[in-house]
Amino acid sequence: MTGLAGPAARVSTDLEALLGHVADAFALGDVGPWSVLTTGYEDCNIDLAAAAARVVVKVFAPDRGSGIAARTAGLITAAQALGVRHPRLHRDTRGALVHAYRGHHVLVMDFVPGRTVYDLDRAPSRRELAGIVEQAARIHAIDANVEPVFDAWAITNLAPLAGQLRDVLDTEQRRLVGQALEENAAVDRAALPAALIHADLTQGNVLLADDGTVTVLDFAVANRFPRVQELAVVAANLTHGSPDPLPKRAETVAELYSAAAAVPVTAAERVALRAFTRAAAAMELLGALAEWHHHGNRGAETEYLIGLGLAGLRDCAALS
């Protein structure tokens, strides 16, 4: 077990009591060993080994709103119907996917063996990356109209977040973010095909099994955006650590997507890809700096993301 720090601090009730309640409500049997998963900046995910099953309990922070859990469960169900690999959701003894307890909403899902790309501490192989991109193409085929949710790390927030952090950025960071802002402002978004995208296909949300099987986690910030935005996030975040510079990695992601999707990457998307990829790198830097300076999240993950974003922006500047 872990103490009440990091993600556990996002839960406003006693974790042991919560897990005992969840185990009873989902007929999981006696509570065994458990630990809080430490990555991520939203909600609290708990690895629970109960008598009947090993599961992950996702506890939504109270400030996320009462509808976010149901929205997430609905998107996961729709994604699974199209062959997206996400851990199976459990129903409570009343048949509901979403369970409420003392101001929190909870989802319970299977524990899936494997390690996140973040924990593996390496870029995916080309075969693994093809599997990830194929999952993205399946997600983009979901025919669902959902209410948008705010995502602080989305590329749409680039300009306001850059403004909020202007005094935090050093000279190099200000120059690199400025280049991303300028290039992103010139994009004709009306010309870009939109889709429901996962919006957070990052190292912490992709599990790889020993055989290379890809499992996608967490649909909480899925939104309707240009689908090239998904490709840019995959390139900027998931492929970090590859020997190729970021623009080349983005081209590889686009190539793999065209092979997997019903509608290949369009000419307009190819033109916009570099700007979106640069913006995605900028958002990694800015989002992590906001966590560091504004929210006090000064752990290894935040430091890593600052370096990831800065490296991507330097790649883009070198190849401009």
Rank of each mutant, 00 (worst) to 15 (best):
R166C: 00
H240W: 08
L165Y: 08
E230V: 02
H198P: 00
D143I: 05
V253I: 03
R189G: 11
T252Q: 15
A199Q: 06
N237L: 03
V214E: 02
E147A: 15
V168Q: 13
R249A: 12
E182R: 15
T239P: 06
R249K: 09
N184T: 14
A180S: 13
V206G: 05
N205D: 08
V168M: 11
T156V: 15
F219E: 09
E172G: 06
L161F: 06
D151V: 10
V168Y: 12
R224F: 07
A159Q: 14
V216T: 11
T171E: 15
G204N: 01
V214M: 03
L208H: 11
D218P: 00
V228N: 00
V214D: 01
T171F: 09
L165I: 04
A220G: 10
K248Y: 09
D143M: 03
A250V: 09
A180R: 12
A154F: 08
P247G: 07
A154I: 14
D200K: 09
L196Y: 04
H240R: 05
E183Y: 08
V168I: 12
D188T: 13
N205C: 08
R249H: 10
G241C: 02
L158K: 11
L176R: 04
L246I: 07
D210T: 12
A152M: 09
T202A: 05
R249S: 08
Q173S: 14
N145Y: 10
G204C: 00
T202Q: 07
D211A: 10
A144L: 10
A154W: 03
D244P: 08
L176H: 04
L176I: 02
L169K: 11
V253E: 03
P193C: 00
D167I: 02
L176S: 01
A232W: 00
L201F: 07
F225A: 14
R224S: 13
L192E: 05
L208Y: 11
L208V: 13
L176G: 01
L207D: 04
Q173F: 09
R174T: 09
V149Q: 10
R227P: 00
N237I: 02
G241F: 09
D188W: 13
N145R: 15
I155G: 05
P247E: 08
H240K: 02
V177F: 06
V214Q: 03
V228G: 00
V228H: 00
V149F: 12
T252R: 11
H198A: 05
Q179T: 10
T213W: 05
P226C: 07
D143T: 12
E251A: 09
Q164C: 01
R174I: 00
D143Q: 11
Q164G: 03
L217A: 05
F150R: 11
T239C: 12
V216W: 12
V234F: 03
D210P: 06
A220F: 11
D143K: 09
L238E: 02
N237R: 02
A250P: 05
N145H: 15
